[in-house]
Design a protein around this nucleic acid. Structure first.
Lengths: 230, 230
DNA sequence: GAAAGTATGTTGGTTTTACAACGAAAGGAG
DNA sequence: CTCCTTTCGTTGTAAAACCAACATACTTTC
């Protein structure tokens, strides 16, 4: 586990902690590491989950599939991201929203109760941990808020431009890449893939946008400065 | 302020605390009470907000208006609800999402820093307070997650049925009332009001739904048990 | 109780989306 | 290189949503 210490130091949950403090905490929390192969669910659906997950390597999507087979992608998680904490904290059991491994990946699993029940030994770290968890959940709420802002747009074009503006602002450049392919982007925006392609083509014709595969260049005066994050 | 103590005892932020503990905490936090008249903004937009708000009386909508004038209603807040905490916690400054007083209302304002900076006197209450804030933010994240689930539906019908199913499950009865009027419901579902009315009429004709004003009766075998909350 | 204002339902025209199907391009495996 | 799979753009059609305008019902005000 110690070989991951450089990663752990960057994780929001351990922010403001010293190296030895983190190692002690990881042991104290009884964290376990688990591997998942491509296209497998990380928490079993229908079973009450008591773990908070931290993504160590690989890519994970938080998805929900509706009755028509449409996949709704909530988030794409990257190294160091925390997941499962919201549902676990408030004891939501039968959610159909689940983390799916998009590539082979490694995950650190921490029992929720060991986070919330203060242990005698390292109480000061524990308070920091809970505060860090608070900031983490607040950030997740903000990400969900951003997603609502995108989905609240009435047209595919507006959804798309809101998303791309955000990505451009995030990268600080008109030229930027996204980690979704077309189908995944459509699933993230909750629109039809072919309709998305049509809209992309139109925007290209109109000179508002240029793109090749997953690399985009967006016209600067289209970018709006709404405070969102995708 | 003490006359509101019965309300404060019910507020999630003060859960698990004794009456005198709460009174002490309110004073220690330097909370102030403020009145807002109908249709006024509670936090000024564009100005960095450092307050967490608690709704004491009246009704508040969290809204965002887009460039076309469409109002997007995120939430309807009721007595005891907490707001502004997510943006304040993570220092989002120029959000266009703002709390608006729908009726005349009273609000308790608490400086974020007095919550996060532990005071010497009542440290045990303070830890409880931060834990309660954590649960509160997790619940807000879940509410936003629920809203994403509604907006991810492709048709007005599916958005509407998801919302009404949720409300019916919440009330534990096929017969239930909602606090939105038609325009507000349309704004919450992010659809056109007249299209919403058309869809409601269709559902009534098909025998799936019956309604009069804000009271609805929904066919039991339509109600799905998705874990969401609206 | 009349008048004014507000909320809801209805209709028709226009725009947008979903859906299915197809073909071209890109990528991988043998 | 060839075959196979995946990804992406395109097209046409049917369904759905938006929008504006209007009619009716309900509320509020004086």
């Amino acid at each position: 586990m110690e070989k991951n210490i450089e990663l752990f130091k960057k994780i929001s949950l351990f922010k403001g902690m010293e190296e030895n403090e983190i190692i002690q905490l990881i042991n104290c929390l009884g964290a376990i590491k688990k591997k998942y192969s491509k296209n497998t669910q990380i928490f079993e659906s229908g079973i009450k989950n008591i773990h908070v997950g931290i993504l160590i390597s690989g890519e994970v999507h938080i998805v929900e599939e509706d009755v028509y087979g449409n996949q709704n992608i909530f988030f794409r998680l990257h190294q160091g991201d925390i997941f499962g904490e919201v549902f676990t904290l408030i004891n939501i059991i039968n959610s159909a929203t689940i983390p799916v491994a998009i590539t082979e990946c490694e995950v650190l699993l921490i029992d929720k109760n060991s986070i919330l029940t203060p242990c005698n030994k390292i109480c000061s770290s524990h308070i920091k941990l809970i505060e860090n968890l608070l900031y983490n959940v607040a950030n997740k709420a903000f990400d969900l808020h951003s997603k609502v802002l995108i989905l609240s747009k009435r047209t595919t074009r507006d959804k798309l431009l809101t998303f791309l503006s955000c990505k451009s602002r995030e990268s600080g450049d008109q030229l930027f890449s996204i980690s979704f392919n077309r189908q995944q982007l459509a699933d993230f925006l909750c629109v039809d893939r072919s309709a998305l392609s049509v809209e992309l083509s139109k925007l290209k014709k109109e000179g508002i946008l240029d793109y090749h595969k997953n690399t985009f260049r967006i016209n600067t005066d289209i970018i709006d400065n709404a405070s969102i994050r995708c």
